[in-house]
Design a protein around this nucleic acid. Structure first.
Lengths: 322, 322
DNA sequence: ATGAAAGCGCTAACAG
DNA sequence: CTGTTAGCGCTTTCAT
């Protein structure tokens, strides 16, 4: 039909018919069937975002960027949650594959097993992939974009050292989380760089919630570790620890300094505005979309590592004299 | 082809061929084309969620539920953000329509204009719709599910009254937000029910952020309104106000009580654990999916109103004697 | 139990 | 500039 041409803004149509068709289409409430179009043109303009959980503050900001940008570029976004389960991640990916999505934003469920059949299928289908966050071994073939966690954490540590702290405790995150491990690594590197020793007696296993932070802080005081500053794997843990210190009558930063990582929305409004490292979550999403566009255009793309920036607020200060 | 039958688990296929086909499909990495299927069967198993912003904490929890449930029921979820702009909302809806989604979860951009062409198109196309939140006039034809904001806010007010407060200030939200207005209405109803007057001198225009709350609190102290308790339109505003009171050396709840609404994640971990009203955000999402399922099955469905529950924590207490 | 034919709504490639 | 033909990958219907 000529109609098809009109609605695609194809050339070779007289202005007269063009307006006539538009009018009629409008009047009939005609909406072209995107599936039929895709079937024919083999272009779906669909992108999938497979993420452990959309409730994670990190994921939320990323989704914000992905959704916004993808829309502006004429793509629709299919969102599905793996809930950190391998089987569910597989079905998420396979369903998206069945819909012939052109690209994937993937936040892989972490596994030790280097085999990941669904990821192989993605590659075989030629779908473009941008991995968000650290790149596990089974994602060798793909590009990724991540925050430089080690650098970020290291900056926080360096900040404490510069203030004069020598005994800096670290409240660590889940051992299965690469991001958490990278932050720990950053802390250690910064200490060594300053010529300080990494004292295992100052490392406390926390987790990722405020509650985890409270428990770790309790354990630390219980062991009288005599730290003058505490660095936490993330802001939640830092705030939990800080809350516990307050309960015990300690003042922050006069008696003890506390630093987090992530700069989550409430860190600024905490009882003591929290010194932390801002992670460019939204930028991460923007970069991911940019990389995806390039991939879809057939260009070659290389992975990116985005730096964080230290945000000094009120929870850190020099150690008490003596 | 027989192949089609096998992969659809259709009857009339010998077990021998069935296994043979499965094996071959596996080996070739064959994934059926969902679009072609949909085109033929006129069933897309696609649902769209059009929301102002996924970054809103309310929307995040809802999305969590929608995505999780929709997946389990075999539907895929298309997520797009209207960013509170009418034109963008239109394109979101129209694109979803072009993909022949079977259902819409809609959080309408609020407008005074009662005409909403995109919504009419949705209706004409016969897509099922569940409105999330208050139902504006142009959504008459659809069902909705919302939290009973007025009731929730009223419970908070009643709680303060019961504690003995008589001068209760209200920090109000954006006048364009129906939810915020409903909460204000709940506050007024509760006062009247207790035989108290609604004193305009105790109403302060805030907004929806912590900063808004701080400003409103500053204004209130500046006008020496002599309130013994403050109720805020949401937790962010409540926390902002509380932070300001602390700065001024006031104690909570000894000098002044503060209550919020919403029970956002950090309300519990605030400097003073915040008394608030828990809104069943996740339940809202669950209910929405349930209603959508019923609609898709062709059943008739009626709108739902979910109650909130008062959560008494440490930010409220009896007024100071005298 | 299997296969052939037709068509879902669209567009690419030609003809007119 | 407009219309015809064929086919995207699948399923439905009807024969075999």
């Amino acid at each position: 039909m000529t109609v098809s041409r009109v609605l695609r803004d194809a050339p070779n149509v007289s202005t007269a018919t063009r307006t006539r068709v538009h009018a009629l289409a409008e009047q009939m409430g005609y909406v072209p069937n995107a599936m039929a179009q895709s079937l024919r043109t083999r272009s779906t303009r669909l992108i999938a975002y497979v993420v452990p959980s959309v409730a994670d503050p990190m994921a939320t900001r990323i989704l914000l960027a992905l959704s916004e940008q993808a829309h502006d570029l004429g793509h629709d976004l299919l969102v599905s949650q793996s809930l950190n389960r391998l089987d569910r991640e597989e079905t998420c990916i396979r369903r998206a594959l069945a819909r012939r999505v052109e690209g994937f934003f993937l936040q892989p469920v972490y596994r030790l097993d280097p085999s990941a059949p669904a990821y192989d299928e993605v590659r075989r289908h030629g779908a473009k992939v941008v991995v968000l966050g650290p790149k596990p071994p089974f994602c060798e073939a793909f590009v990724n974009v991540e925050a430089d966690e080690a650098l970020a954490a290291g900056e926080a540590t360096a900040h404490l050292i510069e203030l004069g702290h020598r005994r800096i405790a670290f409240l660590s995150g889940p051992p299965t989380s690469p991001a958490a491990q990278n932050r720990f690594e950053g802390y250690r590197r910064a200490l060594r760089k300053a010529g300080l020793e990494v004292d295992d007696g100052l490392i406390f296993h926390a987790g990722e919630t405020m509650e985890d932070g409270m428990k770790a802080a309790a354990q630390m005081l219980g062991e009288s570790a005599a730290a003058t500053a505490v660095q936490a794997v993330n802001d939640q843990v830092a705030m939990g620890a800080a809350a516990f210190f307050f309960d015990r009558g300690l003042r922050i930063p006069q008696d003890i300094s506390v630093v987090g990582c992530g700069n989550i929305p409430f860190s600024e409004c905490f009882r003591v505005p929290l010194t932390t490292v801002r992670q460019p979550k939204y930028q991460l999403g923007l970069a991911a979309v940019g990389m995806m566009q390039a991939l879809l255009r057939g260009e070659s793309v290389s992975s990116r590592l985005l730096p964080g920036t230290l945000v000094v607020r009120a929870s850190t200060g020099p150690p008490r004299a003596g």
